[in-house]
């Protein structure tokens, strides 16, 4: 169905891809994310700085995708555009078949509330609100009644194993627990897509694995589509699919299990052609 699912294929997106052209026009309604020739430029004092050079990508429901890349490769920019926090300069982005590029601020806010769950590196919980209120916050903006908010937020907190801390403040629990709360918050409104920006960046390796197991479980058991950004190979190994970015280009899109050397932990050492390209830019 999709060429980019072939293991180890390196897409050179500077050359227009025939199979991507074929998808243009007739939007695959089944895909969660569908971006075409996506460009992003920033205006700076030195002139226009291009960050993303026309990306093409499609993510199907139930996929678990890790996006890797060095600092400045454009992965955070891509994430912000996928999360409807930022708008692309040109190109198209279809989220669940809806063209996002044409939407106004309020509609984007509605999409973020309805379709997307965010997990951030810095957890980004509201420090003054209880864990229950933090988890229930997205429901406030989707006009869910108070009773239902409490029920659904409590359910989500139990799901991440923190039901007994529901009345605590974020600063009273550990970083790993805070990230679980953030995941509960991201999932409380039953999103179609979970976006995680370096979710383990502030956690020790043990807690990182706990969090990643939770993601894996959510993906495999509940079928939630997950796209996460990481620079840790161990973390990326939890995903089924890996997308590597370098200098605003997708330099690798395929299995997270690199063909030569199946050892996930040593993946970065046994660098492939593509990962070498990515590393050389850092």
């Amino acid at each position: 169905m999709k060429t980019h699912l072939q293991n180890g294929q390196v897409i050179d997106d500077s050359v227009p891809q025939g199979d991507n052209e074929a998808v243009a026009g007739k939007v695959v309604s089944g895909s969660v994310i569908h971006i075409q020739n996506l460009r992003k430029e920033y205006a700076s004092v030195a002139g226009v700085v291009p960050v993303l050079h026309g990306l093409n990508m499609e993510v199907m429901p139930g996929e678990f995708v890790a996006i890797m890349g060095a600092s400045g490769s454009g992965k955070s920019t891509l994430m912000n555009i996928l999360g409807c926090l930022d708008i692309a300069t040109s190109g198209s982005y279809f989220l669940k078949g809806r063209d996002v590029t044409a939407l106004d601020r309020d509609s984007l806010a509605h999409l973020r509330n309805d379709l997307i769950g965010f997990v951030f590196q810095g957890f980004n919980l509201l420090p003054r609100a209880s864990l229950l209120d933090n988890v229930a916050l997205p429901l406030v903006y989707s006009k869910v009644s108070r009773e239902e908010r409490v029920v659904r937020a409590s359910d989500m907190l139990s799901k991440v194993g923190l039901a007994k801390y529901r009345d605590s403040r974020p600063n009273q629990i550990s970083g790993g627990q805070q990230q679980r709360v953030a995941i509960a918050r991201a999932l409380v409104n039953r999103p179609k897509l979970l976006l995680a920006d370096e979710p383990t960046g502030n956690l020790d390796s043990h807690t990182s694995h706990e969090i990643m197991n939770l993601f894996k479980e959510l993906n495999e058991r509940d079928g939630i589509t997950i796209v996460l950004i990481t620079h840790e190979v161990e973390v990326a190994a939890y995903a089924h699919r890996l997308v590597r970015l370098a200098d605003g280009h997708i330099v690798y899109d395929g299995s997270s299990h690199i063909p030569q050397g199946d050892n996930e932990g040593t993946m970065s050492k046994n660098s492939t052609e593509s990962s070498a390209a990515a590393h050389s830019t850092s």
Binding site: L85, R105, A109, R112, D114, F118, N124, L137, P138, S142
Partner: peptide, 11 residues
């Protein structure tokens, strides 16, 4: 920013 990310509109 957090509130906007999880769906708060400007208003």
């Amino acid at each position: 920013g957090i509130r906007m990310a999880i769906g708060a509109r400007g208003r």
